Simulated scan of single mutants.
Amino acid sequence: MYSRAELSKIRTDFWIAFGLYMKPVPNAQGRKINWPNYKTGIKDIYFRMRAERGFASIGIELGHSDPELQELFFDQFKELKNLLKGSLGEEWDWQLHAQNELGQTVTKIEKILPSVNVLEKEDWPKIISFLKPRIIALDEFWDNVKPGFEDY
């Protein structure tokens, strides 16, 4: 069993390692970017990467407090579903009004890698190999579609 401090340190170490691994990779506009803390630049639209015990995930999270606005954003993303799938090269799970780990209502478009554990260093290469191409693809997709979300 790990203490709370040990768990926090292992998770922090993973994200530092991921950030260092991704540091030489520019974003779609050729600029340096802090990949682990990706900023979409649009309020209430987040790109979330998680590495936990049992799974890793990456996704788009729509976190507006108004469920109707979440649904509006979700519908906008549905209009772009083929473009998103083309950028990612795979189908992701779409969940309107799901609960996040804090019990808040959010809408998610995500991909999950099961059966990995961030606490096991031997799983880190699998997790990084899962996250890297997807966050790069999301960035390229977002570079093309972000202007359509800037009026909200």
Rank of each mutant, 00 (worst) to 15 (best):
K32Y: 07
A28G: 04
R50C: 13
K81M: 02
G41P: 12
G63M: 02
F77K: 00
L83A: 12
K43Q: 12
A51Q: 03
V25N: 02
E68V: 10
R53S: 15
N82E: 12
N27S: 09
E52S: 15
E68T: 11
G63L: 00
P26E: 02
H64L: 03
W15E: 05
K32F: 05
D44V: 10
N34T: 12
F18A: 04
K43H: 07
W35Q: 08
I16L: 15
G63E: 02
N82I: 04
E52R: 15
V25W: 04
S57D: 11
P26Y: 05
N82P: 03
F55H: 15
L84C: 00
P36V: 11
P36K: 14
N37R: 14
W35Y: 05
Q76R: 14
K85W: 07
T12I: 10
M49W: 00
K43Y: 09
W35N: 02
K78S: 06
F74T: 05
A56V: 05
S57H: 03
S57Y: 01
D66C: 07
E79H: 08
K85A: 10
T40H: 10
R11V: 12
L84P: 00
M22G: 00
Q76A: 09
L80T: 05
E71A: 12
D66H: 10
V25S: 04
N82W: 00
P36W: 10
A17K: 09
I60L: 11
P24N: 01
S65D: 12
G86H: 05
F55L: 13
I45R: 05
R53N: 13
D13Q: 07
K23L: 05
L20V: 15
E52V: 15
